[in-house]
Structure formats: C-alpha cells, structure tokens
Design a protein around this nucleic acid. Structure first.
Lengths: 243, 243
DNA sequence: ACCTGAACACCGTTCAAGT
DNA sequence: ACCTGAACACCGTTCAAGT
C-alpha cells in the first residue's frame, strides 16, 4: 500500500525541524556515506532523526524507495555540477560528464550497486534518463550519424558504470585491510598477480606491473578515449576527430 | 574465526549424500537461480540439505564466503565452456569470451552485483584473474603493443560487467511487472521515453525508438566492437584489423 | 495530517551438546 | 571430525493508539 504524501499546505506553523521526506533522504545519504550500505538502518535513522519508525514510513514507502531517493539526489547533483573547466570540444565534454559520474560514485561508493539495480527498475522517473541525456548529448555533438547515437551512448554508460563500480569496490577492499590505502592495496595485488602460475596466468602476470603503476582516474579516462576513438573510427570518417 | 575444513581421509564410509562444501555451494547456486539473491537463506538452505545451521557453518565461514564460492563456480564454468564455433580471428575470440560472460550473467542475474563486490575483495584467489586472463589473452592476440594491453583489457572487462549488469537488472525489472516479458518491457520504457519533456530530454526522446528496436545481444556486441575499433585505431596502425 | 513505539516475522551467526 | 538445534542480536515493516 502506497503511503500518503505531504499534500501541501498544512496551514500553520510546522516546527522548523519538522520531519520531511527531504530531511529523511538527507540523513540517509549521510549515513550511507559514513557507514556504508549496511549502516543504513531504520533504527539508527530513527535515532538520528529523533522519531519513531512509523514516522519515517509515513514519508517513505520502504527501504527500497529510500535508497532510490538517495541515489537520485546524489546523481542529480553530480550531473548538475558544472565541470571545473568549460569543455572546448565534444570529446572534452564527454570526458567531463564521465568524470562527474565517476567522481560521484567514488565519493559515494554505495551508489554503484544502487545504480545497477535501480536504473532499470523505474526507467522513467528514475535517474536513468538523466544519465543517458547527459552522456548522449555529447555523443550527438561528436557529429556522428544518428544511427550511432544509441550504441555509442549505451556503450559509454555501461563502461562508466562498470569502471566506477569496480573502482568503488577497490576502495572498499582497500579500506577493509587495516592501515592500507588504495595505492598500497593495488601494490599488494600486483605482487600477488606476479606470483601466479606462469602456465595458467601468463597474461595477468605480464600486466601486473601496469596494474601497480597505473593511476585510477587516468586509466578510466583512457577507457573513455578508447570508446570515443571507436565511435569516430566506425562512423564519421571526416568530422569530429579534432581535439 | 575461520572454520576448520575437510582435512581429507575420514577413513571409512561416509554417507553418499554426506554434507560437503561442494554440495552446499551447489544448493546455493540452485537457490540463487530460482529464488534470487534474497531467496538464499540459511534456513531454506538448511531445509533443502536436511541439516542444521551449524552443519553449514562447519563447511563455510559465513554467507559472504558462500556467495563468493557460488560466484566462482559459475564463472569458472562459463569461462571454461568452449564457444559454439571456434573463433577464427582475435576479434571473434574477444567476442566469444565477452558473450560467454554476458550469457552467464544473463542466466544467473545474481552474478552481476556479486562480481562487482567480490572481484576486488580477494583479487588473487577469486575470479578476477580468471576473467582478466581470458579477456586479456585475446587482446594480446590482436597484435597491439604491450603498453595497450592493460588499458584495453580493463576497458573491455568494465564494459562487459557494466552492460551485463544492466541487462540482468532489466530482466529483473521486466519480471517484476507481472505478465511482461523483456520485449514488452523495453517497449513500454521506449514509449515512456518518448513522452518525456522535449526541452529537458531531447536526446533521450530521439533514441527512444532505437531502444525499442534493439536486440540486447547485438547491442552488447556492438559495444564490444566499438572498444575493439578504438584499440586498433589508437594502436597498431598496421596489424590486427582484419576480420 | 502526522507521529509514537511496541510487536511481528524473519534474518545471520553462535555454541553447548551430541555422535 | 562432523552435526544438531535452541538461543541471541538484529533487521524491515505494521499498526493500534495518540495528538
């Protein structure tokens, strides 16, 4: 049963700190950021907001809806934020949007699984069209034929979500090893890869040192460039290749 | 505390249906496939295997380890399975590996979030090196310089996981709408996209019909081809472009 | 209209006890 | 060495009752 929502004017004074869907979502994001997905609990949310469980359920149908709202709030903010430097070419514009999403997922690691699950769940109201619109506009600006728009955009979106998700999980894994930062963590993985069986894992051993030396963000952008190069190589023989 | 494991010879006759880590993992996969991730519960696992909870905990440290073991079993099988037609070129070989992973995630939708979380968690024993090895060997066979191996391989892996994850979530979402198959589901999404605000979502509206008409697997392979084209465009001016 | 908080059904995990 | 099953702490959700 869907809960009733704030239907508008309650007439007179509400307390300044009155409970609202907005405040609940805000508190949820804070909790997710500081304590991770398993840290978001109706009990601690209840304490933080100094209410009862029922109060939250009056504003929000269930935990899934709360997670969806938290996801949408954070992604909307990330897509709205202007890039540090105004992009001068379509390629730069694609990179900027990609970096914006990558950064948001890096800052809020709980976003990654959430986006994967939620994007198709409600593909209309949810965050999906926003992401496709933001990325797709820049693909269109590349000057490739319309038939290439959808393929190029969804390839980019899938790559961005996949790469950012792995990066976020890397951060979680690094944090799990006490006293280890991301660099040391990748270092130890690289060492372990070098020790794998040469017969079974020749390739992994060969790239182990590239894993050690790589910079996450650079690597991410290199992947974006690969897809961009593919888009312009398969389409648009003349235009759009400048940068 | 890590549980003790089966240390080997118990001497004499065990029951033919004796509990074992293998049987537990097998039952877990079955449960995940039929009931989804939320369907895997120690209680129903306990019933299915006709034991007590403690028995399972003797073989498996906790639920996370059980999920990791289930993931590895399924992915290993998918990577080992020979493709229907022997690939004749490096590009075909990349496509075959990509399709294998895509198909495994499509058949076992719970794999997608599991892979995202688990790959970095134990990047040595776990499934990660297997996937990188399988994909990377074919990238190497493309004939591009060694400096391009890692970037190209991780771009492909991230894309594959991202795309397969979205596809799996699409399936879940479609199944959630009663009496709706994947095609009807995408149809309704496409219609909804066409109804979005023209000022805010011009791009999404423009590609709505391509969303309706597309074939999931074709679309996935088109993305793989985009990355392959990018790899050969940015590297290997001479070799590797035949197909 | 909005909130309280006890109660319910369910979950992963532990552990003394058995064989 | 391997298994039993009651018990524990915790979770999301409901709902009669208050204001």
């Amino acid at each position: 049963m869907a809960p009733r929502r704030n239907t508008g004017s309650t007439g007179t004074g509400r307390r300044a700190d009155a409970l609202s869907r907005e405040r609940i979502v805000e508190a949820a994001v804070e909790l997710l950021d500081t304590a991770g997905e398993s840290g978001l609990t109706f009990r601690v949310l209840t304490e933080r907001l100094a209410t009862g469980a029922g109060a939250i359920y009056w504003h929000v149908a269930n935990k899934g809806e709360l997670l969806a709202a938290a996801t949408e709030a954070v992604v909307a903010a990330a897509l709205t934020a202007a890039p540090a430097r105004a992009p001068r070419t379509p390629r730069e514009a694609v990179r900027a949007v990609a970096l914006g999403l990558y950064g948001a997922i890096d800052a809020h690691p709980w976003l990654a699984p959430q986006l994967a699950v939620q994007m198709p769940r409600d593909p209309v109201k949810s965050v999906t069209p926003r992401i496709y619109e933001a990325v797709g506009r820049q693909v269109r600006a590349l000057g490739v034929p319309e038939s290439a728009w959808f393929t190029g955009t969804s390839a980019l979106v899938h790559y961005i979500l996949g790469a950012a998700g792995q990066n976020a999980a890397n951060g979680r894994a690094a944090r799990a090893h006490v006293g280890t930062d991301r660099g040391e963590f990748l270092d130890s993985v690289s060492t372990a890869w070098e020790a794998l069986d040469p017969g079974e894992y020749p390739f992994v051993r060969a790239v182990a040192k590239q894993l050690r030396d790589h910079d996450d963000t650079e690597q991410f952008l290199a992947g974006v460039d690969l897809i961009l190069a593919g888009i312009t190589a398969l389409h648009a023989p003349g235009a759009g290749a400048s940068d």
